[in-house]
Write a protein that binds this DNA or RNA. Structure first.
Lengths: 343, 343
DNA sequence: AACGATTAGCTAAACGTTTAGCTGGTTTGA
DNA sequence: TCAAACCAGCTAAACGTTTAGCTAATCGTT
């Protein structure tokens, strides 16, 4: 492996000069610069990030912890973060915590050992999450992405889920549906809670009663939503429309209705939330709320990098960026307009 | 930030002893060990991986380059790789190359600068791929995953795609379909070429003519397959069954037929390949070939770690692991049996 | 009693960078 | 004309580990 020392020898200069050329950080005459540069390419020299970081105390490494990379929501967020990171010369260490505390702790430890410059967290629902606490006490710059604990003070980039619930529900109300159901995830997920809140607000606005029997909670998954709706359908009465807290659940709801002989959207309308890539290709293209996943990752990484480079005095409260969603009207809700793009 | 030095001071020992305790690498009396350990936890000491790696010349970092993390195929592979890596104390640096040469080179450079111990490559189709060449000349251990150039000699973990094509096509033939079409991706993808080869073999075995007009190629995407099949349908004649080289294409083909008023599988059967998670939840659950994506990532990382730790003399040709797929019979091909699991 | 083996711990030299601080030389401006 | 300012380059000390090599004590064996 070639080192600066060898480059310096070949070019007949000191290693300080090589360093200056590599980082073009100081005055170097054109002649020496050229000699160094040619030595570098002759030897195929590549600076050793370890040595550099050891001295520098910055690694140009960002950590990103997500619950489950297999959920189609996250790859797009990760992609956005990676793009922003790469543009600023950072790399991303991705970890999947699978919702297991041991694994979460192990991931965190190994990220800290690798001395990441900052962390992107897509896994925090509670203010006393151990990872969050540890990172704060270690003073590692961090940004929460997508999820955050109510009342959190610090950097975060999230979607305006209340607005999402409002948009989806108002759209259903506009189609003259009255008995509108909601199916969400466990209460600990702020995303689901807020979508429900948006739904309830829209119902109130329109002076419609919330049919509490049709408010259900289960996993953020297709299977569980399917099972839940098979139960509802078997019990005899069905709603006119359903707002599902994410697209996967919406798919499950639709499959349940279809399997029971109902038509979507003719017999019952369904609206999702997330706008994962597949939603437009579903056999009944899904009307849903677009959440700017890629942008969430991108802005998250950008904010993190800003936080890293900031003299940490300013902005102790952090920045809270909330991205407005927009509604994508497709087929599953019965309004046959073409797709809208906004905002 | 606490260092070994501070731990050593607090415990009243030399830093060599602290190092010995941390790595439990040498004789340390129980008494000192305990004193050191308590100092470590008192100070919340965490070894600095940079310094360690600088000395050690191993970073416990693996690089993984994929074309596009947004394609539902890859997250599962990455997850498998991450699980195996974590089990061996490694971390993974993920890069998305988006099929752009500049980006691929930039990703490679930054991985090399970070001195990854080895590389997982999901992006190599040609023997003279620049990334592949560079890694070989730098003697970085590497494993190709999923894709590989014909005639490649080195480590690889891939699916047996010929077998996949055989399984899918034989199943269609078993359902008494005769006019069976194939839609694949660009010829440069070995995965698609081999699936086609399996298809052709199965047709020959059954003495069926390959309807060359119905052999089509387009992107590995839903949209392109949809467009291609809309054209076919408009031209008047349709096949009895279609084997699509991946699940996304299969979805596109199905959507094209449905949009044109045909029923699947009643009027035309469709079989995919990959078995991405969504295939079982598609409204017409997809009959497809299961490719063991998670295992590919897992075995890939395990093989890579073995290669890293091996005294590099042995096994110069590398190891070529080919995973046998199995068929998952769902609904889109008209055979209504329950799912089979194998092998 | 003398010997090697074994155990326990320490010192100090790397690993490959960055960077503060130094030495001369060359411009500039008053 | 001379000091200040600037420029170009070098030396050497970190950064936080690992580890070879040393000392010294203890323990069996002969």
């Amino acid at each position: 492996m070639t080192t600066m020392r060898k480059v310096a020898e070949l070019a007949g200069v000191s290693i300080a000069t090589v360093s200056a050329v590599v980082n073009n950080s100081a005055y170097v005459s054109d002649e020496l610069r050229e000699r160094v540069q040619s030595a570098i390419s002759q030897l195929d020299y590549r600076p050793n990030a370890l040595a550099r970081s050891l001295k520098n105390r910055r690694t140009k490494l960002l950590g990103f912890m997500v619950r489950n990379i297999t959920n189609p929501f996250y790859p797009e967020v990760v992609l956005g973060a990676e793009d922003a990171a790469r543009a600023a010369g950072y790399n991303i260490l991705v970890s999947t915590t699978a919702d297991e505390e041991d694994r979460e702790r192990a991931c965190l430890e190994s990220m800290l050992e690798h001395r990441v410059d900052g962390m992107l967290l897509g896994i925090v629902d509670e203010i006393n999450n151990p990872t969050l606490i540890k990172l704060k006490e270690q003073k590692v710059p961090l940004v929460l992405v997508n999820r955050w604990p109510e009342g959190f003070e610090g950097n975060a980039v999230v979607a305006d889920n209340i607005e999402g619930g409002l948009l989806a529900t108002r759209h259903m109300i506009d189609q003259a549906y009255k008995k509108i159901a909601f199916i969400g995830a466990a209460q600990r997920f702020i995303t689901s809670r807020h979508r429900e809140e948006g739904y309830r607000r829209a119902m109130r606005e329109a002076s419609l009663a919330v049919p509490e029997d049709f408010i259900r909670y289960c996993d953020y998954s297709e299977e569980h939503a399917y099972t839940e709706y098979r139960k509802i359908i078997e019990s005899g009465e069905i709603p006119q429309a359903v707002f599902a807290a994410n697209d996967l659940m919406a798919f499950g709801v639709i499959r349940a209705f279809l399997d029971s002989g109902y038509r979507v959207p003719e017999d019952v309308a369904v609206v999702g939330c997330d706008d994962i890539e597949f939603s437009s290709k579903f056999l009944i293209p899904l009307t849903t709320v677009h959440l700017h996943k890629y942008e969430m990752g991108k802005l998250g990484a950008e904010l993190l990098i800003r936080a890293i480079n900031e003299p940490d005095i300013a902005e102790p409260k952090g920045e809270f960026i909330q991205i407005k969603p927009y509604l994508v009207i497709r087929k599953s809700c019965g309004a046959m307009k073409t797709e809208t793009h906004g905002p």
